[in-house]
């Protein structure tokens, strides 16, 4: 990276999260590193159990399970978040870092109006009057594309549709103009036509609010349409990272390639069978010492098996994959996409 590049907003280095279960430590996230710059939208993709939500929760300091072990470094605007006290973290959360979740119903208390809850968020972090807070709430809701924002502010969460609740939650997250918005599957519970509206909104946040977004999703289509950069997790480890256009056009990791191939196409000819990936991702305790994807990979060979797992290697400009193939000079062929389930 050139030395005159601005310091990243978020700099995650070798973040690992392990949970204790029955006397053993279960490594859920292993040595994950990435950076996020101002105004950037980074997509964190992975299947269920890949550790993507745990990564986000760890960034926010939201994991306080007894026996959890978090190591590595998370620098946010130059401040180390790993090991930061809850008081300080609380001051950051909501004002500088905000998070939205898949289910907007659980993010709101059912017993207060949506507007009251957004007002509270503003009042907790800034010295403004309740009246000023409500004015800001109404502006925010309007910015999020909520029709009749004043009336919506006086509604209870259950009175709103899923799409409107998600807009209200984004409004609440943006109420203190955070530098970083972490969005965990923000559109997964929504219908496609509403999802399209919310993704539109997320793309516009950086221009209207200047926020950087960490978008966590399992949907490669959502990443392709929304994110500048993409970061693929597999079984708690980094598989690939790079500019979205490069990752999708020339995947460097066989997992990324196979994952893309297994999505049924919306356009063009329909394949007779989908190129599925056989088997399942390993559970954390059964994770191979070498490459975690090797048991399902059609390229797997002796070099993939010994510990440690393959390190990230450069496969293009700012594009890296954790695979031995690039070093061996083996290109990915379409055959990786021809593999099928037993």
């Amino acid at each position: 990276m050139p030395s005159n590049a601005p310091a990243p907003l978020l700099d995650v280095r070798e973040l690992s999260v392990s949970f204790r279960s029955r006397g053993r430590m279960i490594p859920v996230v292993e040595r994950v590193s990435f950076t996020l710059h101002e105004g950037e939208i980074l997509g964190l993709v992975g299947e269920s159990g890949s550790g993507k939500s745990v990564t986000a929760m760890a960034l926010m300091g939201l994991i306080d399970t007894p026996g959890v072990q978090i190591s590595g470094s998370v620098l946010f605007q130059g401040h180390e978040l790993v090991g930061m006290g809850q008081r300080q973290l609380r001051r950051l959360r909501g004002s500088r870092i905000a998070m939205i979740f898949q289910d907007p119903m659980t993010a709101f208390t059912p017993v207060y109006t949506v507007g009251w809850q957004i007002d509270e968020q503003i009042l907790a972090h800034e010295r403004v009057s309740r009246k000023q807070a409500r004015a800001r709430t109404i502006t925010l809701l309007g910015d999020m594309g909520v029709p009749d924002p004043a009336r919506t502010a006086d509604s209870y969460p259950h009175q709103l549709s899923g799409g409107m609740r998600q807009r209200a939650m984004i409004a609440m997250a943006l109420s203190c103009n955070p530098a970083l918005l972490i969005a965990d599957e923000p559109t997964t519970a929504l219908d496609v036509t509403v999802q399209a509206q919310i993704l539109d909104l997320m793309r516009n946040l950086r221009t209207t609010y200047g926020s950087a977004v960490l978008l966590i999703t399992h949907d490669m289509g959502v990443v392709a349409e929304t994110c500048d950069n993409t970061f693929v997790l597999y079984s708690g480890r980094m598989a690939e990272t790079g500019p979205t256009s490069a990752v999708f056009a020339r995947p460097g990791h066989p997992y990324t390639a196979a994952l893309l191939a297994s999505i049924p196409p919306m356009d063009g000819p329909r394949p007779h069978r989908l190129p599925a990936i056989a088997g399942l991702p390993p559970a954390p305790l059964e994770r191979p010492a070498g490459c975690a994807f090797a048991p399902r990979c059609s390229y797997a060979h002796a070099a993939c098996l010994p510990a440690p797992p393959p390190a990230l290697v450069r496969v293009g400009t700012a594009h890296q994959a954790a695979c031995v193939l690039p070093l061996e000079g083996t290109p990915l062929t379409p055959s990786v996409m021809g593999r099928d389930a037993a």
Binding site: T193, Q195, Q197, A224, E225, T244, D267
Partner: peptide, 24 residues
């Protein structure tokens, strides 16, 4: 038409049509 266009395609930089307004 709106439904088919709203499905996100795993192809970066593809044209995105204006989404349908409102909810069901």
């Amino acid at each position: 038409l709106a439904l088919t266009q709203a499905v996100p395609r795993p192809v970066p930089g593809e044209h995105r049509p204006t989404p349908l307004r409102g909810d069901v």
